[in-house]
């Protein structure tokens, strides 16, 4: 099954809005998406599960996809992480 390791670059990591954007993006694919950090493995489509991994900037995370369109889903999610997951503007 396709998988990739990426480093979180955006300041907030997978918290707050980026966690939401990431989980939403994962949920938009038919493929199952798992997120792995430090031996823990969760459903990436669940923002609550993503939050429990407590991923910070600089953390290495593993994304694993299975099923329909797994390769495409993986590529898109890796790209999302690498482009900073749409961190918000300061007001």
């Amino acid at each position: 099954m396709p998988e990739a390791t990426v480093v979180l670059r955006n300041p907030t990591g997978l918290h707050a809005r980026p966690a939401k954007i990431f989980a939403r993006a994962a949920a938009s694919f038919a493929a199952d998406v798992e997120l792995v950090k430090g031996g823990k493995e969760v459903n990436a489509k669940s923002v609550l599960s993503v939050l429990t991994l407590d991923c910070h900037q600089g953390d290495e995370i593993r994304i694993r996809t299975t099923g329909d369109g797994a390769d495409e889903a993986l590529a898109r999610l890796v790209e999302l992480v690498e482009t900073g997951i749409g961190e918000p503007e300061e007001s």
Partner: peptide, 12 residues
């Protein structure tokens, strides 16, 4: 909005 997201969480 985050609360709404929690209510819709698939794992929950």
């Amino acid at each position: 909005e985050a609360h709404g997201e929690f209510a819709a969480d698939p794992e929950l």
